[in-house]
Amino acid sequence: SKTSNTIRVFLPNKQRTVVNVRNGMSLHDCLMKALKVRG
């Protein structure tokens, strides 16, 4: 089974995003990807 960790990230202006960290990806990469999608 694939394991994925879901991390809630609290952003300024009362924004919130959820990042799924996959195996083999660093938290930083996942964060940058999530913020790019939002931006």
Score class of each variant (00 low, 15 high):
14 K>T: 04
22 R>L: 05
8 R>P: 01
10 F>V: 03
4 S>D: 10
17 T>A: 03
8 R>C: 02
31 L>P: 00
25 M>T: 15
35 L>M: 14
26 S>C: 08
13 N>K: 04
15 Q>K: 06
34 A>S: 10
36 K>Q: 07
22 R>N: 10
32 M>S: 10
23 N>D: 13
16 R>C: 01
30 C>R: 01
2 K>V: 09
20 N>K: 15
20 N>H: 06
22 R>D: 06
10 F>Y: 12
30 C>I: 15
27 L>M: 05
26 S>N: 08
36 K>T: 08
26 S>H: 10
19 V>I: 14
19 V>F: 08
26 S>R: 07
1 S>I: 14
2 K>G: 12
20 N>I: 14
24 G>V: 06
5 N>V: 10
30 C>W: 02
26 S>T: 11
13 N>C: 12
19 V>A: 09
35 L>V: 04
16 R>P: 02
36 K>M: 12
25 M>K: 15
37 V>A: 04
2 K>Q: 08
16 R>S: 04
28 H>Y: 09
38 R>G: 02
1 S>L: 14
5 N>S: 15
19 V>T: 08
13 N>T: 07
24 G>S: 15
10 F>C: 03
5 N>K: 08
7 I>N: 01
6 T>M: 13
9 V>M: 01
39 G>E: 05
25 M>R: 15
1 S>T: 14
15 Q>P: 02
23 N>C: 12
29 D>R: 10
17 T>R: 10
10 F>S: 05
1 S>Q: 13
14 K>E: 09
3 T>I: 15
31 L>M: 05
17 T>I: 01
34 A>G: 12
28 H>N: 13
30 C>Y: 00
7 I>M: 06
5 N>G: 10
4 S>N: 12
33 K>E: 01
38 R>Q: 10
6 T>S: 05
4 S>R: 15
9 V>A: 15
31 L>R: 01
15 Q>H: 01
36 K>N: 12
33 K>D: 07
14 K>N: 09
14 K>W: 10
33 K>G: 05
29 D>G: 09
39 G>S: 11
24 G>A: 14
28 H>S: 07
25 M>I: 15
33 K>M: 10
23 N>K: 13
32 M>I: 12
2 K>N: 06
10 F>L: 03
1 S>N: 13
4 S>G: 12
21 V>E: 01
18 V>A: 03
18 V>D: 00
36 K>E: 04
10 F>P: 10
26 S>D: 06
18 V>I: 07
34 A>E: 06
18 V>T: 07
33 K>N: 01
6 T>K: 02
37 V>W: 14
13 N>S: 05
21 V>A: 13
10 F>I: 00
19 V>E: 10
1 S>C: 15
13 N>G: 07
39 G>D: 12
33 K>Q: 04
8 R>L: 05
22 R>C: 04
37 V>M: 06
15 Q>L: 00
33 K>I: 00
11 L>P: 00
6 T>R: 05
37 V>G: 01
38 R>H: 01
7 I>S: 02
9 V>T: 10
35 L>R: 01
2 K>T: 07
29 D>N: 11
2 K>E: 04
3 T>N: 08
5 N>D: 05
22 R>P: 12
16 R>H: 15
36 K>S: 10
19 V>G: 02
20 N>S: 08
12 P>L: 02
23 N>I: 09
14 K>S: 10
17 T>P: 01
30 C>G: 07
7 I>F: 06
24 G>Y: 10
27 L>R: 02
28 H>D: 08
25 M>E: 07
19 V>D: 00
6 T>L: 14
34 A>P: 14
3 T>S: 06
24 G>D: 11
14 K>R: 08
12 P>R: 03
2 K>R: 11
32 M>V: 08
21 V>F: 10
25 M>L: 15
36 K>I: 05
24 G>C: 13
5 N>Y: 06
33 K>R: 05
18 V>E: 07
21 V>G: 06
9 V>G: 00
38 R>Y: 10
2 K>M: 13
17 T>F: 10
1 S>G: 09
9 V>L: 04
32 M>R: 09
37 V>E: 00
29 D>A: 08
32 M>A: 11
14 K>Q: 09
17 T>S: 15
38 R>C: 00
12 P>Q: 03
25 M>V: 15
12 P>T: 04
24 G>R: 14
20 N>E: 10
26 S>G: 03
23 N>T: 12
11 L>R: 02
16 R>L: 03
29 D>Y: 06
39 G>R: 04
18 V>F: 04
22 R>H: 08
15 Q>R: 01
27 L>P: 00
39 G>A: 06
11 L>V: 02
35 L>A: 10
34 A>V: 02
31 L>V: 05
11 L>M: 04
28 H>R: 12
9 V>E: 00
1 S>H: 13
19 V>L: 14
6 T>V: 12
13 N>Y: 14
5 N>H: 08
21 V>S: 10
38 R>P: 03
12 P>M: 10
38 R>S: 04
31 L>T: 10
37 V>L: 12
36 K>R: 13
38 R>L: 04
28 H>P: 02
27 L>Q: 00
12 P>S: 00
5 N>T: 14
21 V>M: 03
6 T>P: 02
22 R>F: 07
5 N>I: 03
21 V>I: 10
8 R>H: 01
13 N>D: 08
17 T>N: 04
34 A>T: 02
1 S>R: 13
29 D>H: 06
22 R>G: 06
31 L>A: 10
21 V>L: 05
30 C>F: 07
14 K>I: 06
20 N>D: 03
33 K>T: 03
28 H>Q: 14
7 I>D: 10
1 S>A: 10
10 F>H: 08
30 C>S: 14
27 L>K: 07
39 G>C: 10
8 R>S: 03
8 R>G: 03
29 D>V: 07
1 S>P: 15
6 T>A: 05
7 I>T: 02
23 N>H: 12
16 R>G: 02
20 N>T: 06
18 V>G: 01
39 G>V: 04
32 M>K: 13
13 N>I: 03
35 L>P: 00
22 R>S: 04
15 Q>E: 05
29 D>E: 09
18 V>L: 02
28 H>L: 13
12 P>A: 03
31 L>Q: 00
23 N>Y: 09
27 L>V: 09
7 I>L: 13
32 M>L: 13
11 L>Q: 00
32 M>T: 13
23 N>S: 13
14 K>M: 08
4 S>T: 15
4 S>V: 10
35 L>Q: 00
9 V>K: 10
20 N>Y: 07
26 S>I: 07
10 F>T: 10
36 K>D: 10
4 S>I: 13
28 H>C: 14
3 T>A: 14
7 I>P: 07
13 N>H: 11
33 K>L: 10
7 I>V: 06
3 T>P: 15
4 S>C: 12
